[in-house]
Amino acid sequence: MYLLHGKNITCGYDTVDILSKFTVGVKKGEIASIVGPNGAGKSTAMKSIFGLLKIRLGTIFLDNEDITKLPPQERVLKGMGYVPQTNNIFPTLSVQENLEMGAFIQHEDFSDILDYVYNLFPILKEKRNQQAGELSGGQRQQVAVGRALMTKPKVLMLDEPSAGVSPIVMESLFQKIIEIARQGTAVLMVEQNAKQALEISDIGFVLNQGKNLYTDTGKALLSNKEVRQAFLGG
């Protein structure tokens, strides 16, 4: 049973459908990746699942609850965290303030979550009083993920987490993502680096021209000849 389940999503801009009947889902404690060529509609998929883009058809369930009609802020309250691809931090705020803003809509004490994030990303604790905009690309990405974790989400959605960071940084970032999933948070991500993403994914969705092309475990997709030839560069 999927924790977050988008069924038959059809949506787009103006009259052009970018996604048609796209289905995606992720289970508790697992990692799911959406991969596919440029322009396949990966980012659109993320936006529509998070409610940044109205969907025309289809339904989205979180924990068996229909959240199709909820605005993004309320989805955050229901337990979704979202890390946009770009502009995902507050550059002139300190690292700690960035994390506090992540917990903005929570009225309870969040010091335990802050500890959890600092444990996950020790470098952030070290630099907690520095302006986030002054950090390196990889550290900024950690701030962005940390910010989204501050609401203790059931599902964490990452839009191209490895965009603009070096391979080494990407490696360690993916390790962190695995760690997050092991702690019980479902992770749904969109990745350009399909191979590396699928390696750590429990389930993968290959998206092409707005449609589901293949859905299988990460391992199975990696060993699927057609997928490899078409999307993973052989």
Binding site: L77, Y82, F104
Partner: peptide, 12 residues
Amino acid sequence: SDNQELALLSGI
């Protein structure tokens, strides 16, 4: 003032 979009996402 830093990032309007992200502020909205954070529920501000």
